[in-house]
């Protein structure tokens, strides 16, 4: 989850604010395509493909979190040192395309680092090291796998609402700020984001509501262990997955059956609160823009 929110918001910011029209036209549907992917497929991939891979390349996955941002910034700085002729070939709006090979390379690079890092710091086996030296239990299907998979499923929800909110900020505000000498990013932080913040807030709420109710990914990629601790590497079980597992087995009108319905009610109230909050904020925002 934590991994999805920044990615989705930053991506939305770039798409709405910096990207040129042509690229935006196909980038947006591509990302929104994830929303259409059945979660059962995501869950299946997370459970049967991502989980074993993550187990094998655990240091690589952690390296990703560091290598990619640092690598990107270094690349960006390096870019300014390049001769102008090359730089002008790629306008600001197309930078996302330029970054695709860079990102792929960085991802591949951190996966390659996995084995040497394991040897250097974790005696050749990070799983082993975690269990015996750090005292953390490790399950193959753990909360981290779900975090990745679920984050992936939530990106489009957050992305599209945020993108709309930013795109709808009146251009004269932006132009005014740029005219006063602010850089592109300063305009974004100082003017655009505050104006669009209710929209971004409601996007995060919507994403959160969706995450709470997501069933299939958790069902398939978590260990479904009923006992859990605050440990990223252990299995877990959520309300929704619990319903899906136990409901078919509960006898009609037994207390088990009623407890499960209660769980459903709790789930409903959870999402109801988040959604209503998001909706109210969005409606208020709409009225505010009406006056602008």
């Amino acid at each position: 989850m934590l991994f999805a929110v920044p990615i989705a918001i930053l991506a939305a910011v770039f798409t709405a604010f910096f990207m040129d029209k042509q690229t935006r036209q196909w980038i947006k549907p591509t990302i929104e395509m994830i929303e259409a992917l059945p979660t059962v497929i995501l869950g299946f991939l997370a459970g049967l493909w991502l989980a074993p891979h993550m187990e094998q390349n655990l240091p690589g996955f952690f390296a990703l979190l560091i290598v990619v941002p640092v690598g990107v910034i270094v690349f960006g700085y390096g870019w300014t040192r390049l001769p102008k002729a090359i730089r002008n070939r790629v306008p600001l709006g197309k930078r996302a395309l330029l970054m695709i090979p860079v990102v792929v390379f960085l991802g591949w690079f951190s996966m390659q680092m996995s084995i040497p890092m394991e040897d250097a710091w974790f005696n050749g086996d990070m799983r082993h090291w975690l269990t015996f030296s750090a005292g953390i239990d490790f399950d193959q299907r753990n909360a981290m796998v779900i975090g990745f998979a679920m984050g992936f499923a939530l990106i489009p929800t957050i992305f599209s609402v945020t993108e709309d909110a930013i795109y709808n900020v009146p251009t004269y505000l932006v132009n005014g700020s740029l005219a006063l000498g602010a850089s592109g990013w300063q305009t974004l932080i100082g003017v655009v984001i505050p104006t669009a913040s209710p929209g971004i807030f409601s996007a995060v709420m919507l994403g959160f509501g969706r995450g709470v109710g997501e069933t299939m990914i958790v069902l398939m990629a978590s260990g479904n262990t009923p006992l859990m601790e605050m440990n990223l590497f252990e299995g877990m079980r959520t309300l929704a997955a619990n319903l899906a597992i136990e409901m078919p087995e509960a006898a009609v009108s037994s207390s088990h059956y009623r407890v499960l319905f209660l769980a459903g009610l709790v789930l409903f109230i959870f999402t109801f609160v988040f959604n209503t909050l998001a909706e109210v904020v969005r409606q208020r925002m709409r009225r505010k823009y009406g006056s602008l």
Binding site: A8, L10, A11, T15, P69, R95, M99, W185
Partner: peptide, 12 residues
């Protein structure tokens, strides 16, 4: 800006 551009490409 570079970071946000890269997140778009990550998603894609």
């Amino acid at each position: 800006i570079w970071l946000s551009a890269s997140t778009v490409s990550i998603s894609v």
